[in-house]
Design a protein around this nucleic acid. Structure first.
Length: 487
RNA sequence: GUCCCGUUCGUCUAGUGGCCCAGGACGCCGCCCUCUCAAGGCGGAGAUCACGAGUUCGAAUCUCGUACGGGACGCCA
Protein backbone atom coordinates (compact mmCIF):
# COMPACT_ATOMS: atom_id res chain seq x y z
CA UNK A 1 0.00 0.00 0.00
CA UNK A 2 1.25 3.42 -0.88
CA UNK A 3 2.23 5.74 1.91
CA UNK A 4 0.14 8.80 2.66
CA UNK A 5 0.84 11.56 5.18
CA UNK A 6 -0.45 15.01 5.88
CA UNK A 7 0.24 18.37 7.42
CA UNK A 8 -2.87 19.65 9.16
CA UNK A 9 -2.43 23.14 10.57
CA UNK A 10 -5.15 25.24 12.08
CA UNK A 11 -5.41 28.70 10.58
CA UNK A 12 -5.26 30.69 13.77
CA UNK A 13 -2.12 32.74 13.21
CA UNK A 14 1.00 32.85 11.09
CA UNK A 15 2.82 29.69 10.02
CA UNK A 16 5.13 28.84 12.89
CA UNK A 17 8.64 27.57 12.28
CA UNK A 18 7.83 24.47 14.33
CA UNK A 19 4.86 23.82 12.07
CA UNK A 20 7.09 24.18 9.06
CA UNK A 21 9.41 21.56 10.43
CA UNK A 22 6.52 19.17 11.00
CA UNK A 23 5.34 19.84 7.45
CA UNK A 24 8.87 19.31 6.16
CA UNK A 25 9.27 15.94 7.86
CA UNK A 26 5.96 14.79 6.47
CA UNK A 27 6.90 16.06 3.04
CA UNK A 28 10.29 14.37 3.12
CA UNK A 29 8.80 11.13 4.39
CA UNK A 30 6.32 11.14 1.53
CA UNK A 31 8.96 11.95 -1.07
CA UNK A 32 11.37 9.35 0.18
CA UNK A 33 8.70 6.66 0.07
CA UNK A 34 7.05 7.74 -3.18
CA UNK A 35 3.99 8.52 -1.15
CA UNK A 36 1.43 11.29 -1.07
CA UNK A 37 1.72 14.48 0.94
CA UNK A 38 -1.60 16.08 1.78
CA UNK A 39 -2.52 19.43 3.26
CA UNK A 40 -5.66 19.81 5.32
CA UNK A 41 -6.90 22.94 7.02
CA UNK A 42 -8.24 22.29 10.51
CA UNK A 43 -10.51 25.26 10.91
CA UNK A 44 -13.07 23.89 13.34
CA UNK A 45 -12.35 26.70 15.75
CA UNK A 46 -14.98 29.11 14.50
CA UNK A 47 -13.71 31.96 16.61
CA UNK A 48 -10.02 31.95 15.86
CA UNK A 49 -9.78 30.65 12.31
CA UNK A 50 -9.16 33.31 9.69
CA UNK A 51 -8.69 33.46 5.95
CA UNK A 52 -5.58 35.56 6.47
CA UNK A 53 -4.03 32.71 8.44
CA UNK A 54 -4.91 30.23 5.74
CA UNK A 55 -3.26 32.51 3.21
CA UNK A 56 -0.20 32.74 5.45
CA UNK A 57 0.00 28.94 5.51
CA UNK A 58 -0.09 28.80 1.73
CA UNK A 59 2.49 31.55 1.46
CA UNK A 60 4.88 29.88 3.89
CA UNK A 61 4.49 26.43 2.38
CA UNK A 62 5.06 27.75 -1.11
CA UNK A 63 8.08 29.79 -0.12
CA UNK A 64 9.59 26.68 1.45
CA UNK A 65 8.65 24.74 -1.68
CA UNK A 66 6.77 22.17 0.38
CA UNK A 67 4.44 21.29 -2.43
CA UNK A 68 1.49 19.19 -1.47
CA UNK A 69 0.02 16.51 -3.70
CA UNK A 70 -3.49 16.86 -2.35
CA UNK A 71 -5.32 19.60 -0.58
CA UNK A 72 -6.72 23.07 -0.97
CA UNK A 73 -4.96 25.39 -3.38
CA UNK A 74 -4.44 29.13 -2.94
CA UNK A 75 -6.68 29.87 -5.91
CA UNK A 76 -9.64 28.35 -4.07
CA UNK A 77 -9.74 25.05 -5.89
CA UNK A 78 -9.16 21.65 -4.34
CA UNK A 79 -6.67 19.14 -5.59
CA UNK A 80 -7.36 15.47 -4.92
CA UNK A 81 -10.17 13.00 -4.39
CA UNK A 82 -11.05 13.71 -0.75
CA UNK A 83 -12.39 17.19 -1.21
CA UNK A 84 -13.10 19.43 0.58
CA UNK A 85 -9.91 19.81 2.59
CA UNK A 86 -11.25 22.39 4.99
CA UNK A 87 -12.76 20.79 8.07
CA UNK A 88 -15.35 23.53 8.45
CA UNK A 89 -16.65 22.71 4.98
CA UNK A 90 -16.62 19.04 5.80
CA UNK A 91 -18.57 19.74 8.96
CA UNK A 92 -21.12 21.74 6.97
CA UNK A 93 -21.61 18.68 4.79
CA UNK A 94 -22.52 16.69 7.87
CA UNK A 95 -19.54 14.42 7.46
CA UNK A 96 -18.64 14.19 11.14
CA UNK A 97 -22.23 14.19 12.31
CA UNK A 98 -22.75 10.90 10.60
CA UNK A 99 -20.13 9.20 12.75
CA UNK A 100 -21.22 11.02 15.88
CA UNK A 101 -24.73 9.64 15.36
CA UNK A 102 -23.33 6.20 14.82
CA UNK A 103 -21.44 6.34 18.11
CA UNK A 104 -24.49 7.59 19.98
CA UNK A 105 -26.63 4.85 18.49
CA UNK A 106 -24.08 2.29 19.63
CA UNK A 107 -23.92 3.79 23.11
CA UNK A 108 -20.30 4.85 22.59
CA UNK A 109 -21.05 8.54 22.93
CA UNK A 110 -23.61 10.55 24.85
CA UNK A 111 -25.03 13.99 25.38
CA UNK A 112 -23.57 16.09 28.17
CA UNK A 113 -25.48 19.09 29.50
CA UNK A 114 -22.90 20.42 31.92
CA UNK A 115 -22.32 24.14 31.82
CA UNK A 116 -18.95 25.80 31.67
CA UNK A 117 -19.37 26.80 35.32
CA UNK A 118 -20.13 23.26 36.43
CA UNK A 119 -17.13 21.96 34.53
CA UNK A 120 -14.89 24.60 36.04
CA UNK A 121 -16.14 23.83 39.55
CA UNK A 122 -15.36 20.18 39.00
CA UNK A 123 -11.88 21.02 37.77
CA UNK A 124 -11.21 23.10 40.88
CA UNK A 125 -12.46 20.36 43.13
CA UNK A 126 -10.19 17.82 41.46
CA UNK A 127 -7.18 20.05 41.94
CA UNK A 128 -8.02 20.67 45.58
CA UNK A 129 -8.35 16.96 46.17
CA UNK A 130 -5.07 16.31 44.36
CA UNK A 131 -6.74 14.28 41.67
CA UNK A 132 -6.12 14.72 37.95
CA UNK A 133 -8.61 17.27 36.60
CA UNK A 134 -10.88 15.20 34.44
CA UNK A 135 -14.55 15.14 33.60
CA UNK A 136 -16.64 13.55 36.33
CA UNK A 137 -18.87 11.50 34.07
CA UNK A 138 -21.91 13.27 35.47
CA UNK A 139 -24.02 13.00 32.30
CA UNK A 140 -22.75 9.57 31.34
CA UNK A 141 -25.79 7.62 32.34
CA UNK A 142 -28.62 10.08 32.06
CA UNK A 143 -31.95 8.44 31.25
CA UNK A 144 -33.89 9.63 28.19
CA UNK A 145 -36.35 11.24 30.60
CA UNK A 146 -33.63 13.20 32.34
CA UNK A 147 -32.26 14.30 29.00
CA UNK A 148 -35.68 15.48 27.87
CA UNK A 149 -36.13 17.42 31.05
CA UNK A 150 -32.81 19.20 30.67
CA UNK A 151 -33.56 20.02 27.07
CA UNK A 152 -36.97 21.32 28.08
CA UNK A 153 -35.12 23.72 30.35
CA UNK A 154 -33.32 24.95 27.27
CA UNK A 155 -29.98 23.42 28.18
CA UNK A 156 -27.48 23.06 25.38
CA UNK A 157 -25.42 19.93 25.09
CA UNK A 158 -22.15 18.62 23.73
CA UNK A 159 -21.43 15.07 22.69
CA UNK A 160 -18.91 13.21 24.76
CA UNK A 161 -17.07 10.06 23.82
CA UNK A 162 -17.60 7.23 26.28
CA UNK A 163 -14.00 6.30 27.02
CA UNK A 164 -13.47 2.63 27.75
CA UNK A 165 -12.34 2.29 31.35
CA UNK A 166 -10.48 -0.98 31.32
CA UNK A 167 -7.00 -1.88 30.21
CA UNK A 168 -4.24 0.05 28.58
CA UNK A 169 -3.94 1.82 25.28
CA UNK A 170 -0.61 1.28 23.60
CA UNK A 171 1.06 1.80 20.29
CA UNK A 172 4.45 1.51 18.66
CA UNK A 173 5.64 4.96 17.85
CA UNK A 174 8.15 5.19 15.02
CA UNK A 175 10.25 7.64 17.01
CA UNK A 176 9.59 6.78 20.65
CA UNK A 177 9.06 3.05 20.50
CA UNK A 178 6.39 1.49 22.65
CA UNK A 179 4.14 3.98 24.44
CA UNK A 180 1.48 2.96 26.92
CA UNK A 181 -1.31 4.84 28.68
CA UNK A 182 -3.65 3.41 31.28
CA UNK A 183 -7.28 3.77 30.23
CA UNK A 184 -8.22 5.00 33.69
CA UNK A 185 -6.19 8.15 33.05
CA UNK A 186 -8.24 9.00 29.99
CA UNK A 187 -11.58 10.74 30.21
CA UNK A 188 -14.78 11.25 28.27
CA UNK A 189 -13.67 13.97 25.93
CA UNK A 190 -15.99 16.23 23.99
CA UNK A 191 -16.24 15.22 20.34
CA UNK A 192 -18.93 17.65 19.26
CA UNK A 193 -19.33 21.18 20.56
CA UNK A 194 -22.65 22.89 21.27
CA UNK A 195 -22.20 24.63 17.94
CA UNK A 196 -22.47 21.26 16.26
CA UNK A 197 -18.86 21.40 15.10
CA UNK A 198 -16.58 18.49 15.87
CA UNK A 199 -13.62 18.98 18.17
CA UNK A 200 -10.07 18.51 17.02
CA UNK A 201 -9.65 15.05 18.51
CA UNK A 202 -12.66 13.74 16.67
CA UNK A 203 -12.20 15.51 13.35
CA UNK A 204 -8.58 14.38 12.97
CA UNK A 205 -9.52 10.78 13.47
CA UNK A 206 -12.36 10.89 10.97
CA UNK A 207 -10.36 12.74 8.35
CA UNK A 208 -7.15 10.82 8.78
CA UNK A 209 -9.14 7.66 8.25
CA UNK A 210 -11.28 8.92 5.40
CA UNK A 211 -8.32 10.45 3.64
CA UNK A 212 -6.38 7.23 3.98
CA UNK A 213 -3.45 8.32 6.10
CA UNK A 214 -1.02 5.49 6.62
CA UNK A 215 1.21 7.48 8.98
CA UNK A 216 0.65 10.42 11.26
CA UNK A 217 3.80 12.42 11.86
CA UNK A 218 3.28 15.30 14.26
CA UNK A 219 4.76 17.14 17.21
CA UNK A 220 5.09 15.35 20.51
CA UNK A 221 2.72 17.80 22.12
CA UNK A 222 0.14 15.43 20.64
CA UNK A 223 1.36 12.32 22.45
CA UNK A 224 -1.22 12.64 25.16
CA UNK A 225 -4.00 13.01 22.58
CA UNK A 226 -2.98 9.82 20.87
CA UNK A 227 -4.52 7.24 23.25
CA UNK A 228 -7.88 9.04 23.12
CA UNK A 229 -7.72 9.13 19.37
CA UNK A 230 -6.84 5.46 19.20
CA UNK A 231 -9.91 4.68 21.27
CA UNK A 232 -12.02 6.65 18.83
CA UNK A 233 -10.57 4.74 15.88
CA UNK A 234 -11.46 1.51 17.62
CA UNK A 235 -14.96 2.62 18.54
CA UNK A 236 -15.56 3.43 14.91
CA UNK A 237 -14.17 0.07 13.86
CA UNK A 238 -11.18 1.58 12.09
CA UNK A 239 -7.54 0.66 12.09
CA UNK A 240 -5.34 3.45 13.37
CA UNK A 241 -2.41 4.75 11.34
CA UNK A 242 1.21 4.39 12.42
CA UNK A 243 2.21 7.27 14.66
CA UNK A 244 5.49 9.16 14.80
CA UNK A 245 5.91 11.89 17.38
CA UNK A 246 8.57 14.43 16.60
CA UNK A 247 10.36 16.27 19.36
CA UNK A 248 9.65 19.95 19.73
CA UNK A 249 11.96 22.80 18.86
CA UNK A 250 13.10 24.69 21.92
CA UNK A 251 14.59 28.09 22.48
CA UNK A 252 18.01 28.51 24.13
CA UNK A 253 16.31 28.49 27.55
CA UNK A 254 15.02 24.96 26.98
CA UNK A 255 11.41 25.98 26.65
CA UNK A 256 9.15 25.42 23.67
CA UNK A 257 10.09 27.87 20.94
CA UNK A 258 7.92 30.95 21.11
CA UNK A 259 7.80 34.59 20.19
CA UNK A 260 10.06 35.73 22.98
CA UNK A 261 12.89 33.71 21.46
CA UNK A 262 12.75 35.91 18.38
CA UNK A 263 11.42 35.07 14.96
CA UNK A 264 9.02 32.14 14.80
CA UNK A 265 7.02 33.09 11.74
CA UNK A 266 8.45 31.57 8.55
CA UNK A 267 7.83 34.74 6.63
CA UNK A 268 10.09 36.58 9.04
CA UNK A 269 12.91 34.26 8.04
CA UNK A 270 12.40 35.27 4.44
CA UNK A 271 12.52 38.92 5.44
CA UNK A 272 15.66 38.37 7.47
CA UNK A 273 17.43 37.19 4.34
CA UNK A 274 17.37 33.42 4.56
CA UNK A 275 17.14 31.22 1.51
CA UNK A 276 14.30 28.69 1.72
CA UNK A 277 16.67 25.88 0.75
CA UNK A 278 18.99 26.75 3.60
CA UNK A 279 16.19 26.92 6.12
CA UNK A 280 14.90 23.61 4.84
CA UNK A 281 18.31 21.98 5.21
CA UNK A 282 18.74 23.43 8.70
CA UNK A 283 15.29 22.43 9.88
CA UNK A 284 15.74 18.91 8.55
CA UNK A 285 18.76 18.56 10.81
CA UNK A 286 16.86 19.67 13.86
CA UNK A 287 15.95 16.29 15.25
CA UNK A 288 17.15 14.22 12.34
CA UNK A 289 20.53 13.07 11.12
CA UNK A 290 22.02 10.56 8.71
CA UNK A 291 24.30 7.90 10.11
CA UNK A 292 27.32 9.88 8.94
CA UNK A 293 25.99 13.15 10.29
CA UNK A 294 25.92 14.81 6.87
CA UNK A 295 25.40 18.56 7.11
CA UNK A 296 24.81 19.93 3.63
CA UNK A 297 22.45 18.37 1.15
CA UNK A 298 22.31 18.93 -2.60
CA UNK A 299 18.93 19.63 -4.18
CA UNK A 300 16.80 16.50 -3.96
CA UNK A 301 19.20 14.78 -1.60
CA UNK A 302 17.10 15.28 1.51
CA UNK A 303 14.12 13.86 -0.31
CA UNK A 304 16.20 10.83 -1.25
CA UNK A 305 17.89 10.26 2.10
CA UNK A 306 15.32 11.16 4.73
CA UNK A 307 14.72 8.25 7.06
CA UNK A 308 12.45 8.60 10.02
CA UNK A 309 14.54 6.15 12.01
CA UNK A 310 17.18 8.85 12.19
CA UNK A 311 14.87 11.08 14.20
CA UNK A 312 15.85 12.12 17.68
CA UNK A 313 13.27 11.78 20.46
CA UNK A 314 14.73 14.64 22.47
CA UNK A 315 13.98 18.28 21.81
CA UNK A 316 16.38 20.39 19.75
CA UNK A 317 17.45 23.94 20.42
CA UNK A 318 17.46 26.22 17.43
CA UNK A 319 20.88 27.77 16.85
CA UNK A 320 20.84 30.93 14.72
CA UNK A 321 24.63 30.83 14.28
CA UNK A 322 24.52 27.51 12.54
CA UNK A 323 21.55 28.56 10.43
CA UNK A 324 23.52 31.63 9.36
CA UNK A 325 26.53 29.55 8.42
CA UNK A 326 24.34 27.23 6.42
CA UNK A 327 22.65 30.14 4.69
CA UNK A 328 26.09 31.42 3.70
CA UNK A 329 26.91 28.01 2.27
CA UNK A 330 23.76 28.11 0.18
CA UNK A 331 24.38 31.66 -0.96
CA UNK A 332 27.83 30.62 -2.18
CA UNK A 333 26.32 27.78 -4.17
CA UNK A 334 23.60 29.89 -5.72
CA UNK A 335 24.22 30.89 -9.35
CA UNK A 336 24.85 34.63 -9.61
CA UNK A 337 21.77 35.30 -11.63
CA UNK A 338 19.53 33.58 -9.08
CA UNK A 339 21.34 35.29 -6.23
CA UNK A 340 20.74 38.62 -7.88
CA UNK A 341 17.05 37.86 -8.14
CA UNK A 342 16.99 37.03 -4.46
CA UNK A 343 18.90 40.19 -3.59
CA UNK A 344 16.90 42.63 -5.68
CA UNK A 345 14.03 43.18 -3.22
CA UNK A 346 16.49 43.80 -0.42
CA UNK A 347 18.48 46.28 -2.49
CA UNK A 348 15.33 48.09 -3.42
CA UNK A 349 14.18 48.18 0.17
CA UNK A 350 17.52 49.69 1.19
CA UNK A 351 16.84 52.54 -1.21
CA UNK A 352 19.83 52.00 -3.45
CA UNK A 353 19.45 53.31 -6.99
CA UNK A 354 20.97 50.72 -9.29
CA UNK A 355 19.48 52.11 -12.47
CA UNK A 356 22.80 53.30 -13.87
CA UNK A 357 24.24 49.80 -14.16
CA UNK A 358 23.20 46.98 -16.42
CA UNK A 359 21.89 43.69 -15.07
CA UNK A 360 25.18 42.15 -16.08
CA UNK A 361 27.17 44.74 -14.14
CA UNK A 362 24.91 44.36 -11.11
CA UNK A 363 25.50 40.62 -11.10
CA UNK A 364 29.25 41.20 -11.30
CA UNK A 365 29.13 43.62 -8.39
CA UNK A 366 27.04 41.29 -6.25
CA UNK A 367 29.32 38.43 -7.23
CA UNK A 368 32.38 40.22 -5.91
CA UNK A 369 31.49 39.36 -2.34
CA UNK A 370 29.35 36.30 -2.84
CA UNK A 371 31.55 34.23 -0.55
CA UNK A 372 31.02 36.72 2.23
CA UNK A 373 27.28 37.00 2.56
CA UNK A 374 25.53 35.03 5.25
CA UNK A 375 22.18 36.78 4.89
CA UNK A 376 20.62 38.44 1.86
CA UNK A 377 19.99 41.45 4.04
CA UNK A 378 23.75 42.08 4.22
CA UNK A 379 24.04 42.61 0.48
CA UNK A 380 22.77 46.20 0.18
CA UNK A 381 25.27 47.69 2.59
CA UNK A 382 28.14 45.74 1.10
CA UNK A 383 27.51 47.00 -2.42
CA UNK A 384 26.18 50.45 -1.59
CA UNK A 385 29.44 52.30 -2.24
CA UNK A 386 29.33 51.27 -5.88
CA UNK A 387 26.27 53.44 -6.32
CA UNK A 388 26.73 56.21 -3.79
CA UNK A 389 29.60 58.37 -2.59
CA UNK A 390 31.58 56.48 0.03
CA UNK A 391 30.92 57.10 3.68
CA UNK A 392 34.25 56.98 5.46
CA UNK A 393 34.56 54.73 8.48
CA UNK A 394 36.34 56.38 11.35
CA UNK A 395 38.59 53.36 11.66
CA UNK A 396 39.63 53.72 8.02
CA UNK A 397 40.46 57.37 8.49
CA UNK A 398 42.46 56.68 11.63
CA UNK A 399 44.37 53.68 10.43
CA UNK A 400 44.96 54.41 6.77
CA UNK A 401 44.59 58.09 5.94
CA UNK A 402 46.65 59.10 8.95
CA UNK A 403 49.74 57.54 7.38
CA UNK A 404 52.23 60.19 6.20
CA UNK A 405 52.43 58.80 2.67
CA UNK A 406 48.67 58.53 2.14
CA UNK A 407 48.20 61.83 0.40
CA UNK A 408 51.11 61.38 -1.98
CA UNK A 409 49.96 57.88 -2.80
CA UNK A 410 46.45 59.00 -3.68
CA UNK A 411 47.67 61.88 -5.76
CA UNK A 412 50.12 59.72 -7.63
CA UNK A 413 47.78 56.83 -8.18
CA UNK A 414 45.02 59.13 -9.38
CA UNK A 415 47.37 60.36 -12.04
CA UNK A 416 48.47 56.84 -12.94
CA UNK A 417 44.88 55.71 -13.35
CA UNK A 418 44.02 58.83 -15.30
CA UNK A 419 46.63 57.88 -17.85
CA UNK A 420 45.59 54.27 -18.01
CA UNK A 421 43.88 53.38 -21.26
CA UNK A 422 42.98 49.81 -20.39
CA UNK A 423 40.92 50.04 -17.18
CA UNK A 424 40.70 46.32 -16.43
CA UNK A 425 41.61 44.54 -13.22
CA UNK A 426 44.77 43.00 -14.63
CA UNK A 427 46.21 46.20 -16.01
CA UNK A 428 45.09 48.10 -12.91
CA UNK A 429 46.97 45.67 -10.74
CA UNK A 430 50.07 45.86 -12.94
CA UNK A 431 49.96 49.66 -12.97
CA UNK A 432 49.42 49.88 -9.25
CA UNK A 433 52.25 47.52 -8.43
CA UNK A 434 54.52 49.35 -10.82
CA UNK A 435 53.63 52.65 -9.17
CA UNK A 436 54.44 51.22 -5.76
CA UNK A 437 57.79 49.87 -6.91
CA UNK A 438 58.84 53.07 -8.68
CA UNK A 439 58.06 55.18 -5.65
CA UNK A 440 59.52 52.83 -3.07
CA UNK A 441 56.27 51.80 -1.41
CA UNK A 442 55.26 48.37 -0.29
CA UNK A 443 52.22 47.12 -2.17
CA UNK A 444 50.05 47.43 0.92
CA UNK A 445 50.99 51.06 1.39
CA UNK A 446 49.30 51.78 -1.92
CA UNK A 447 46.46 49.26 -1.91
CA UNK A 448 45.05 50.28 1.43
CA UNK A 449 44.61 54.01 0.85
CA UNK A 450 43.13 53.31 -2.58
CA UNK A 451 40.61 50.94 -1.08
CA UNK A 452 39.60 53.43 1.56
CA UNK A 453 39.41 56.29 -0.92
CA UNK A 454 37.00 54.53 -3.25
CA UNK A 455 34.91 52.58 -0.73
CA UNK A 456 35.32 54.36 2.58
CA UNK A 457 36.26 51.09 4.21
CA UNK A 458 39.27 49.05 5.21
CA UNK A 459 37.82 45.87 3.92
CA UNK A 460 35.84 44.85 0.91
CA UNK A 461 36.12 42.88 -2.27
CA UNK A 462 39.27 42.17 -4.18
CA UNK A 463 40.58 45.63 -5.01
CA UNK A 464 41.22 45.70 -8.74
CA UNK A 465 38.03 44.07 -9.85
CA UNK A 466 36.21 46.45 -7.58
CA UNK A 467 37.70 49.57 -9.11
CA UNK A 468 37.47 48.19 -12.61
CA UNK A 469 33.72 47.76 -12.17
CA UNK A 470 33.48 51.25 -10.76
CA UNK A 471 34.95 52.83 -13.88
CA UNK A 472 37.85 55.13 -14.47
CA UNK A 473 36.08 58.45 -14.19
CA UNK A 474 34.40 57.57 -10.90
CA UNK A 475 37.54 56.09 -9.39
CA UNK A 476 39.72 59.06 -10.25
CA UNK A 477 37.10 61.45 -8.91
CA UNK A 478 36.90 59.52 -5.63
CA UNK A 479 40.68 59.43 -5.27
CA UNK A 480 40.80 63.18 -5.64
CA UNK A 481 37.87 63.74 -3.35
CA UNK A 482 39.52 61.64 -0.67
CA UNK A 483 42.59 63.84 -0.53
CA UNK A 484 40.90 66.25 1.82
CA UNK A 485 40.72 63.52 4.47
CA UNK A 486 44.46 62.88 4.44
CA UNK A 487 46.92 64.59 6.70
C1' G B 1 -1.27 17.57 41.53
C1' U B 2 -1.82 13.40 37.68
C1' C B 3 -0.09 11.14 33.31
C1' C B 4 3.42 10.88 29.30
C1' C B 5 8.11 11.90 27.17
C1' G B 6 13.19 13.12 27.31
C1' U B 7 18.71 13.43 29.14
C1' U B 8 26.18 12.26 24.45
C1' C B 9 31.06 18.71 23.80
C1' G B 10 27.89 25.77 24.65
C1' U B 11 24.47 24.13 20.28
C1' C B 12 22.86 20.31 16.28
C1' U B 13 24.29 15.37 16.35
C1' A B 14 27.10 10.01 15.18
C1' G B 15 26.87 5.87 18.15
C1' U B 16 21.91 -0.19 18.73
C1' G B 17 27.59 -4.64 23.98
C1' G B 18 34.13 -4.77 22.42
C1' C B 19 36.50 -0.73 16.38
C1' C B 20 34.72 4.89 21.62
C1' C B 21 39.45 7.19 27.83
C1' A B 22 33.42 8.83 22.26
C1' G B 23 33.36 10.70 15.64
C1' G B 24 31.29 14.91 12.56
C1' A B 25 29.11 20.00 12.14
C1' C B 26 28.23 25.19 14.00
C1' G B 27 30.61 28.52 17.23
C1' C B 28 35.49 29.65 19.61
C1' C B 29 41.16 29.82 19.39
C1' G B 30 45.83 29.34 16.47
C1' C B 31 48.56 28.69 11.87
C1' C B 32 48.68 28.78 6.40
C1' C B 33 46.92 31.30 1.97
C1' U B 34 46.46 36.65 1.00
C1' C B 35 45.78 43.70 -1.36
C1' U B 36 41.76 44.02 3.33
C1' C B 37 37.53 41.24 4.97
C1' A B 38 35.71 36.68 3.88
C1' A B 39 36.06 31.88 1.72
C1' G B 40 39.35 27.70 1.70
C1' G B 41 43.27 24.40 3.96
C1' C B 42 45.58 22.58 8.46
C1' G B 43 45.60 22.15 13.74
C1' G B 44 43.62 23.03 18.86
C1' A B 45 40.54 23.62 23.19
C1' G B 46 35.73 21.62 24.33
C1' A B 47 31.51 15.61 26.68
C1' U B 48 33.77 12.00 34.05
C1' C B 49 28.04 9.82 27.51
C1' A B 50 22.48 13.47 33.87
C1' C B 51 23.35 10.57 38.56
C1' G B 52 23.30 5.77 41.29
C1' A B 53 22.95 0.61 41.32
C1' G B 54 22.61 -3.96 38.52
C1' U B 55 23.43 -7.59 34.19
C1' U B 56 28.09 -8.85 31.57
C1' C B 57 34.79 -10.99 30.75
C1' G B 58 33.33 -6.06 28.74
C1' A B 59 28.05 -0.68 28.75
C1' A B 60 27.20 5.77 26.01
C1' U B 61 24.73 1.33 24.25
C1' C B 62 20.64 -3.69 28.24
C1' U B 63 17.64 -3.46 33.34
C1' C B 64 15.94 -0.87 37.62
C1' G B 65 15.84 3.41 40.56
C1' U B 66 16.87 8.83 41.43
C1' A B 67 17.40 13.75 39.80
C1' C B 68 16.55 17.44 36.49
C1' G B 69 14.07 19.23 32.10
C1' G B 70 9.94 19.28 28.77
C1' G B 71 4.89 18.26 27.23
C1' A B 72 -0.27 17.25 28.08
C1' C B 73 -4.34 17.56 31.34
C1' G B 74 -10.16 22.99 27.23
C1' C B 75 -17.03 23.00 23.98
C1' C B 76 -7.99 25.26 21.27
C1' A B 77 -5.84 22.72 17.71
Amino acid sequence: MSIKVRFAPSPTGFLHIGGVRTALFNYLFAKRNNGTFLLRIEDTDEERSTQASTDAIFEGMQWMKLNWDEGPMPDGTDKGPDTPYYQAQRADQGLYKKYIDQLIAEGKAYKCYCTAEELEANRQKCIEEHRPPKYSGKCRDLTPEQQQELEAQGRKYVIRFRMPEEGDVEWDDMIRGHVKFASKDLYDLVIQKTSGYPTYNFAVVVDDHLMGMTHVIRGDDHISNTPSQIQIYRALGWKEPIFAHLSMIHGPDGKKLSKRHGATNVVEFRNMGYLPEALKNYLALLGWATSDSQQLFAPGELEAKFDISGCQPSPAVMDPEKLNWMNGEYIRQTPLSALTDYALPFIEKAGIDISRVSREQLEAIIGLEQEKYKLLTEIPDLIRFFFEAPVFEQEALDKVFSKPEAKAVLEGIAKTYQDLTDFTDTSLEAATRAFAKENGYKAGQVFHPVRVAVSGRTHGPTLFKMIAYMGKEEVVARLQAALQYCK
